[in-house]
């Protein structure tokens, strides 16, 4: 996915936003290419929404530069807003109007003539699966329906970029799956650039080409999942877990003598356990990939190998490493 060599569609350089003493976004450099699905990942209050607001000219940066489609959102807000569809987190609609009315308003604000707007709105409502609720007032909509209406609302202006702030917040798992599928379709079929923010790691992992990790106003890593792991994996070690039986002292010794080994944690055995047929586990960490060597050692020692797994850093591990235990995260989820 690094092969997107086209002109960047969103560029931010040394972007900073301060609220009094507090820095919400600090020295942010980020480039997003056309047709990409980019995920902003970070806990609440990390500066994701502030960054998005600066892209839309809804708040002014304290310093630094933003360019969206080559335009400055603070100077040419209308041109930017014509090209960018934005769905705020917890999107609001006029509750006593119907879904169709709400869409028509957006369409007409974008200068689409009323007849065309109606046709497009009906098409979009069908596409997001709301065709049966045309005459229902939005006040009676469920959270998931609102979110889908939000997507339709973003699409009706035919944007080049769509920015979704926490699109999956508060929707049930099935709804999330459908929503992500829809977003993926849009990006693949229509070449839309999608920027979405989330603190749900797995959802971002599923559909994003690239991910940026935000912590306390700083972008600490950016790239696809593999390169992210590489960037964050400072010691470059590889961990191998294996289980084998019967476990012998010789095996213990040979495993701990492997070339390039960093740490070795053998099974907690008493003498009689060596002769047991039960399989026992060991964890090996090395500076390089020791998987096949460890397997060979086990077999050479006459033991049978029951399982071996090279442990790779998923975003999960990365995430937890940066958001220590995720306690804060759980709490903030609870509030929503």
């Amino acid at each position: 996915m690094e092969s997107f060599a086209q002109a960047p569609i969103i560029e931010m350089s040394r972007l900073t936003k301060k609220y009094g003493e507090q820095t919400a976004v600090s020295q942010l450099d980020l480039t997003i290419h056309r047709g990409e699905v980019y995920g902003l990942l970070g806990p609440n209050g990390a500066g994701k929404t502030t960054t998005i607001l600066m892209m839309l000219g809804l708040t002014e940066p304290s310093s630094g530069k933003v360019r969206v489609c080559g335009l400055d959102p603070a100077r040419q807000p209308l041109e930017v807003k014509r090209r960018v569809g934005y769905m705020p987190d917890d999107v609001g609609f006029y509750e006593d109007r119907t879904a169709l009315d709400n869409l028509l308003l957006t369409a007409r604000l974008n200068g689409i003539p009323i007849q065309d707007a109606r046709i497009q709105a009906l098409e979009l409502l069908e596409r997001v699966g709301l065709q049966h609720t045309l005459t229902k007032r939005v006040g009676a909509f469920s959270r998931g329906m609102r979110q889908r209406l939000g997507i339709a609302d973003v699409l009706i202006k035919k944007p080049e970029i769509i920015i979704l702030d926490e699109p999956t917040l508060g929707i049930d798992p099935e709804g999330v799956r459908e929503l992500l599928e829809l977003i993926e379709q849009l990006s693949r079929n229509e070449g839309l650039t999608v920027l979405l923010s989330s603190h749900h790691l797995h959802q971002v992992q599923q559909i994003c080409d690239r991910v940026g990790l935000f912590v306390q106003g700083k972008l600490i890593a950016s790239g696809n999942i593999e390169s992210l792991a590489k960037q964050l994996d400072d010691d470059g070690s590889v961990t191998v877990e294996l289980s084998a039986a019967p476990w012998s002292k010789e095996l213990d010794e040979r495993l701990s003598g492997l070339d390039g080994l960093l740490t070795y944690k053998g099974p907690d055995v008493s003498d009689h356990a060596y002769s047991s047929v039960l399989s026992l586990d060991a964890v090996i960490t090395g500076t390089r990939d020791l998987t096949s060597e460890a397997a060979r050692t086990v077999l050479d020692c006459g033991a049978s190998l029951f399982g071996i797994r090279r442990k790779q850093y998923g975003l999960d591990d990365i995430y937890h490493r940066y958001f220590e235990g995720g306690g804060q995260l759980e709490r903030s989820n609870g509030i929503q």
């Binding site: 839309l56 809804l58 807000p77 209308l78 041109e79 807003k81 014509r82 960018v84 569809g85 934005y86 769905m87 705020p88 917890d90 999107v91 609001g92 609609f93 006029y94 509750e95 957006t106 604000l109 974008n110 200068g111 609302d153 202006k157």
Partner: peptide, 14 residues
Amino acid sequence: SKGTLSRLLSQPLY
């Protein structure tokens, strides 16, 4: 408070 302001102001309108 109803969240319509940010949606409205992200449309091309002064």
